[in-house]
Design a protein around this nucleic acid. Structure first.
Lengths: 132, 132
DNA sequence: TCGATAGTCAAGCAACTGGTTCAGTATGCG
DNA sequence: CGCATACTGAACCAGTTGCTTGACTATCGA
């Protein structure tokens, strides 16, 4: 087992989310999630110059989302699941935190309710301060 | 602010990931994941003008990640878990796709291996085309 | 060897971003 | 009332992004 770098490396979420914010780049990630591909393969469905596609590849690679290596004249790109997982993890942590707090609020409301005619749908608890 | 109704909307991943790409905005999301907050509360740890914070709030709200409503003179922001979940879902789908394909590749390699001295660490299968 | 293929580099450009300041408006409170 | 709070709007500005074109290098295959 190779324990090289990135064992406890803080992935650069700025760059990762920035990379995912472009539809063309998401398209590339989607394509690469089905297996490795060359730069020109990635460019085919994308209606832009190869130069532009290469720039997107560089953005994705700088974010760590993909890796690439050149063999002969073709550069082959593939996805790095680690970074994908860490972006997913950041969102998941915040989401579960929100849900946990909403549940607690729900419990609190249930406990202190004298008149139980209040809303019970958890989604409705997201705007708890809208009425005077 | 942006009162656009997005009821059965396809969440705009461009805007969502773009919103998450800024550390200040992620800080706000993190804060809001612990409960609703006003704009000036959000601004406190952020070392920038209130105007700037408000602009970030507008970006987050346009992405659907947060909602806000004004009561008296204070605007209270809260997180929308739905959009958070859809961003998480997009990443998760790609990640599981990658992992599924890596597993299939692993199985294939295991089946066709005459000499079983090849690497077994799944992470190493991410660069499968580096040899002629 | 020659031409097609695959990528790379550099420069330029319009649009977008993330901040600022200044000048408001509306509300809460003593 | 009068002052502080909390936000809002408009204008401006430097830096970044997402492309483009044109010139160039390197490799593959007949």
């Amino acid at each position: 087992m190779i324990l090289k770098r990135m064992l406890h490396y803080a992935p650069d979420l700025d760059r990762v989310f920035q990379a995912l914010a472009d539809p063309g780049r998401r398209h590339m990630v989607e394509r690469l999630s089905r297996g490795p591909a060359s730069v020109s393969e990635l460019s085919k469905p994308l209606n832009m110059s190869l130069t532009a596609v290469l720039q997107h590849v560089q953005v994705l690679e700088a974010s760590g989302l993909i890796r690439s290596s050149k063999l002969g004249r073709t550069r082959t790109c593939s996805i790095n699941t680690t970074v994908l997982r860490s972006a997913e993890g950041w969102i998941a942590e915040r989401r579960t935190m929100v849900e946990r707090n909403l549940d607690r609020l729900g419990d609190y409301l249930a406990e202190t309710a004298d008149r139980p005619d209040t809303a019970a749908d958890p989604e409705d608890r997201q705007r708890p301060m809208e009425k005077p």
